Amino acid sequence: GPGLTDLFKTEKAAVKKMAKAIMADPSKADDVYQKWADKGYTLTQLSDFLKSKTRGKYDRVYNGYMTYR
């Protein structure tokens, strides 16, 4: 089956995709945050998933999740 690194890459891609969806349409934020909360994502995990070469690119999404939880 898929190894943990593959799983991480898949999760990371999914999280980034959802983060971009929030940035494009902030009204989606609560739905996405709820999904992440259901998956039990911690802020540390989210921070790892949303690492970007562009500093602060996903800060709004991260901060939103922090206040959501």
Rank of each mutant, 00 (worst) to 15 (best):
A13V: 07
Y58N: 01
I22S: 02
V15Y: 01
K16A: 04
G64P: 01
G40N: 06
V15S: 01
D38M: 10
S27D: 08
G3H: 15
T54R: 11
A19V: 04
K12C: 08
T5G: 13
D6H: 10
D48C: 15
T44R: 15
Y65D: 00
D59W: 14
D30Y: 11
K12R: 14
Q34T: 06
D38C: 11
Y62N: 03
K9G: 07
D48H: 15
T5S: 11
D30T: 10
S47C: 12
A14S: 09
T44A: 14
T42K: 04
S52C: 09
K53N: 15
N63G: 06
M23P: 00
G40K: 05
A14M: 14
T54Y: 10
R55Y: 13
K39G: 04
T5L: 12
Y68G: 01
G1W: 09
K16D: 02
A21F: 07
L50M: 03
R60T: 12
I22L: 13
L7A: 13
K39C: 12
F8V: 09
L7V: 13
N63W: 15
F49G: 02
L43C: 08
T54M: 05
T5N: 12
T44I: 12
P2V: 11
K53R: 08
Y65A: 01
Y41G: 00
G1L: 13
Y33C: 00
M18E: 15
K35F: 12
A21W: 08
M18D: 14
G3L: 10
W36T: 00
T5D: 13
Y68H: 05
S47L: 08
G56V: 03
L7K: 10
K17Y: 07
A14V: 11
K39M: 14
D31Y: 10
K9I: 08
A24W: 05
R55N: 14
K20G: 06
D38Y: 08
V61R: 00
M66C: 11
V61M: 02
K39Y: 09
P2D: 12
F49L: 08
D30E: 12
Q34C: 07
K39V: 07
S52H: 07
R69H: 09
M18N: 07
T67K: 15
Y58I: 02
D59K: 07
Y33V: 01
Y68N: 02
K12V: 08
L4Q: 12
R55K: 15
L43R: 03
G64F: 02
Q45H: 08
K53I: 06
D30W: 09
G3W: 09
K53F: 05
T42Y: 02
Q45T: 06
T44N: 12
T44P: 10
L46E: 00
K28N: 10
Y62R: 09
N63T: 10
Y41E: 00
Q45F: 04
K12I: 05
K51Q: 09
Y65Q: 00
S52W: 04
K57H: 07
V61P: 02
G64A: 05
T42F: 02
K35V: 13
F49P: 00
R55P: 15
A29R: 05
M18S: 07
Y41C: 03
G3E: 12
R60Y: 10
M66S: 10
G64N: 04
G64S: 03
P2M: 08
V32N: 03
M18F: 04
A29W: 02
F49A: 05
A24F: 09
A21Y: 07
Q34L: 05
R60L: 15
L50N: 00
L43Q: 04
V32W: 02
Y58A: 00
S27K: 10
G56Y: 06
T67P: 03
A19F: 02
A24P: 00
D38P: 00
I22K: 00
W36R: 00
K39E: 08
K39R: 11
T44D: 11
K57E: 11
G64L: 02
T10L: 13
G40C: 06
K17T: 07
A24R: 13
T10N: 08
T54L: 07
Y68K: 02
A19H: 01
D25I: 03
T10I: 15
L46Q: 00
D25G: 03
G56W: 06
Q34Y: 06
S27M: 07
A29K: 04
G56T: 05
G1P: 14
S47E: 10
G56H: 10
W36A: 01
P26F: 07
L4W: 11
K51E: 11
P2T: 11
F49C: 05
Q34N: 07
K17M: 08
M23V: 05
T10M: 11
L43G: 08
K9C: 13
A24S: 08
K20R: 14
S47G: 08
Y62P: 00
Y68Q: 01
K20S: 08
T54G: 09
D59Q: 13
T42M: 02
V61Y: 02
D31E: 14
G3Q: 13
A24N: 11
T54V: 13
D48L: 15
T42S: 09
K16R: 14
K17A: 13
A37F: 14
